[in-house]
Amino acid sequence: MKRVSLSGLEKTVQQVWDWYEVQSTISSQCKGRVIESIRRGTPAPYPSLDGLSLDEVDDFFDELDDAAMLDLMAAAEAAIRLDYLDRVYKRRKDPLSRAFRRLYQHQGNGVGLEEHILASWKAEAHDAPTRSAIGDFSGALNLRHWLAHGRYYEPRLGHDYSPLDIYSMVVDLLSSLGILLQPQTVEGK
């Protein structure tokens, strides 16, 4: 079977979080200038925001949080999929790697994150914290799908998420699965 052509361009969860922290600081400063222009009745620093109410200004700047949450979950997915491919390509002998190889034979490169990879992890996980980390992440994937598909439908979310919630969740998950948070090397070509 033809191997996945790996880009090597994936970001780690930590890289996404570091980016978000810097952007969030800059965004807060920009928002502060917009609010100050409203208070003073002076021209706004960004003409594209003219006409917006304060609530709409909040929504505008909250977009960064949604972008960051999507990016964090995408980075986690990349790490999980790279680990999956690594186990398949290196033909490891542990039960999970064997299960992944069987999956690979049936699904090829079209393997699903939730229904295949995470389900296999859950089947092999014997401790409650790991199963719980997988369950939490699977629940948050509803948010990921909603954001990634353009939010055109009403999402079914168990609760509201913040970027910090998602960051903590994916760090917990990857730590529980023993997947490195740093960039990985997979023999993909």
């Binding site: 917009v34 222009s37 409203i38 009745g41 021209p43 706004a44 003409p47 925001l49 003219d50 006409g51 917006l52 109410s53 304060l54 200004v57």
Partner: peptide
């Protein structure tokens, strides 16, 4: 009425 706290205007 949407209020007077509007970016670039005195009310909306």
């Amino acid at each position: 009425p949407k209020g007077m706290n509007i970016v670039g205007a005195a009310g909306r």
